[in-house]
Simulated assay, not measured.
Amino acid sequence: MTRTIRRAAGFAFALAALAGAAQAHNLWLLPSSTVFSKADTVSVDAAVSNDLFVANHAPMRLDGLQITAPDGSALKADNEAGLKQRTVFDVNMTQPGTYRIAVVNTGAFASWKDKATGQTQRARGSAETIAKEIPADALEVAVSQMMGRVETFVTVGKPSPLKPIGQGMELISTGSPTDLVKGEKTTFTLNLDGQPARGLDVTVTAGNTQYRDKLGEIKLKTDDKGQFSVTWPAAGMYWLDASTRDSKTTVPKAKERRVSYAATLEVMP
């Protein structure tokens, strides 16, 4: 694989990490269950797919995997394996309470025109390395910062409060994100850098999209407090996502920041 192709592939993955429901590929974590009565092990699939919760495109990279136990401590995944179309891992849960399992993607990507050929080049990297990828004589340079979080929640025994992160986009529930029931209404808050994310479009989509002619998305918008409510139409696994752009960058030369969020939630009968 040439360096140019590697760059293009990396850029495509960066865009996929920021994808909303309207785009072709979705990033998701799918736990074997979200509620356990006692200490146990949860198995998690991680993929980038065309259909929700069906691994039919590519495995998700787990470089940014973060597993947070109920007491706030960081855990490591067990039995991690990369398959052709999905990545799998286990989480050994010994503490009672709610676990946060997330893949966090941060960094930057750039595009420019090669001075000699006039062709567009692209690269992805960290805030520290992205500048080294851009030639000194590059033309029409555009740099963007990205922050993406893909996560799910699992509870052992009684749910416990989730500590706010305060960076990027995050979901806050008035109750537990693992205590969702068909026919009941749940109110969530979306925060952006620790503050209410006002006027943001949110999409909630039930899984098994490969069996439907229409996605059947639930379209919502956050209010002035960053809140929105969902009345769950049926039991099953759901994918919730939102994204936004602003100019609050911390990467040199970046004029735009793209922030995305996606969560897998289980609704009980």
Rank of each mutant, 00 (worst) to 15 (best):
F188R: 03
T203M: 14
L200C: 00
P177Y: 13
P177N: 14
T203C: 10
Q145L: 00
K158P: 02
D179P: 03
T203K: 09
T155W: 14
D193Y: 00
T205N: 08
T152H: 12
D179Q: 12
D179W: 05
L180I: 07
L162N: 10
P159I: 02
F188I: 01
I172K: 09
T203S: 15
K158N: 12
T152A: 09
V156G: 05
L171G: 07
V154T: 02
G199V: 02
I172P: 02
Q167I: 01
P196F: 02
I172T: 07
F188E: 08
T187I: 00
D193T: 01
K185P: 14
M169Q: 04
S176D: 10
F188M: 03
P164L: 13
I165T: 12
V181G: 04
D201P: 04
L162K: 09
P196E: 03
D193K: 01
S160M: 00
T186P: 05
Q145D: 00
G175T: 14
G194N: 03
T189W: 02
Q145G: 00
L190G: 10
G183E: 15
T174S: 11
P161F: 01
S176F: 05
L171I: 03
F153R: 10
P164C: 08
G168F: 05
K185L: 13
N191Y: 01
Q145C: 03
F188A: 06
T187Q: 03
G183R: 06
T189S: 08
R149V: 11
V204H: 14
V181E: 09
S160I: 00
V156S: 06
K158V: 07
A197Y: 04
V181A: 08
K182F: 07
D201G: 07
F188H: 08
T186K: 10
V154R: 04
P159H: 13
G166M: 11
G194S: 05
T189R: 08
L190R: 12
M169K: 08
F153K: 13
G175S: 13
T155C: 06
A197V: 06
V156N: 10
L192E: 05
T155N: 10
P159T: 02
R149Y: 03
G168T: 02
G183V: 09
D179A: 14
T178W: 14
K163Q: 08
I165G: 03
L162D: 15
P159Q: 11
L192M: 04
K182T: 10
M169I: 08
A197S: 07
G168R: 04
L162S: 11
S173D: 14
L190A: 08
F153W: 15
T178K: 03
